[in-house]
């Protein structure tokens, strides 16, 4: 790194920081300003500039560590990547303009300085983007796992009666998992009736209906009844409008009705205590 630039940045650190904060505040959109308090903004900005200056003195592990920490923090705070990137560009612009004003850059050395500057900034830029995408990927994969865990629970509620409550959108991958869990659960719990509750499924289109019908058929093959509960009015409307034939499957409007029907199938019923004493 060019000694000249390094010296300039070190000497004018506070000046650059102030300018940077002012410029960035104009550039940041309202959303960002709202979530971050002034103090937090100043502190994070200072940290950012600190991080960049670390890169000047030491070009190795120390910088990488700080960058990782910073990227994680910034992602958590919800700062967009474009903003951080812009910040980096702004930093180099301010530094460069400052150096021009003070006459440190002149006709003779400008090419050298620009070249030096560029070879200093570009790897940093890359590293930040890299770190950002890594952090995001990590978050996404964690969420994917969490979603998978939530995707198809099977609950034995009564002897021989099992419920599978479904919440959220169903895609092909999830439908497959639902089918597997459903069948394995039926065999494991030795259920006679399985209730699929779709109260929490926002949309039932032909694909979802197809998967549900398949699951119901498969349940019948392993020797149990399959019932569909929690059909909301709008779902009923879509099903009929799409011309989906659910005639083969027993449908009920609530889980409660479903359980009553399931008890009936297994020739049992719930009676109140007084009635029994009579």
């Amino acid at each position: 790194m060019n000694e000249l630039v390094y010296k300039y940045i070190r000497d004018n650190r506070n000046n650059i920081l102030d300018n940077w904060i002012i410029n960035m505040r104009e550039k940041a959109d309202e959303r960002l300003i709202k979530v971050v308090s002034d103090e937090m903004f100043a502190r994070t900005s200072s940290e950012f500039i600190d991080m960049i200056t670390t890169r000047l003195t030491d070009n190795g592990q120390e910088f990488l560590n700080r960058l990782t920490d910073f990227a994680e923090k910034v992602v958590r705070l919800g700062w967009p990547l474009t903003f951080v990137n812009e910040g980096l560009r702004e930093f180099s612009r301010i530094t460069f303009e400052g150096m021009m004003d003070t006459g440190l850059v002149n006709q003779d050395n400008q090419m050298d300085i620009i070249y030096d500057f560029d070879s200093f900034m570009t790897p940093m830029n890359n590293e930040i983007v890299n770190m950002y995408s890594q952090t995001w990927e990590k978050t996404v994969s964690l969420q994917k796992i969490a979603l998978q865990e939530l995707s198809a629970p099977l609950i034995p509620v009564l002897d021989r009666i099992t419920v599978m409550p479904l919440v959220g959108t169903i895609d092909t991958e999830r439908a497959k998992q639902i089918m597997e869990n459903l069948l394995q659960g039926v065999v494991k719990h030795r259920s006679e009736v399985v209730l699929i509750d779709i109260t929490g499924v926002p949309v039932v289109d032909t694909m979802v209906a197809h998967h549900i019908i398949q699951a119901a058929e498969a349940v019948r093959l392993v020797g149990a009844h399959c019932m569909l509960c929690g059909i909301r009015p709008e779902i009923a409307q879509t099903i009929v409008n799409l011309g989906i034939n659910l005639n083969e499957i027993t449908t009920k409007n609530s889980l409660q009705k479903g359980i009553e029907a399931a008890l009936e199938i297994t020739s049992r019923k719930i009676v109140e205590m007084e009635e029994m004493e009579e």
Binding site: V187, R190, Q214, A218, L221, V222, G223
Partner: peptide, 25 residues
């Protein structure tokens, strides 16, 4: 005693065994 995997295969093959009675065991 149709196993889950067998049931899935049958459904995927489009064989629904419509008029067959089934039981767990």
């Amino acid at each position: 005693g149709i196993q889950p995997a067998v049931a899935i295969t049958l459904i995927e093959l489009g064989i629904v065994l419509d008029d067959v009675l089934t039981a767990l065991d």
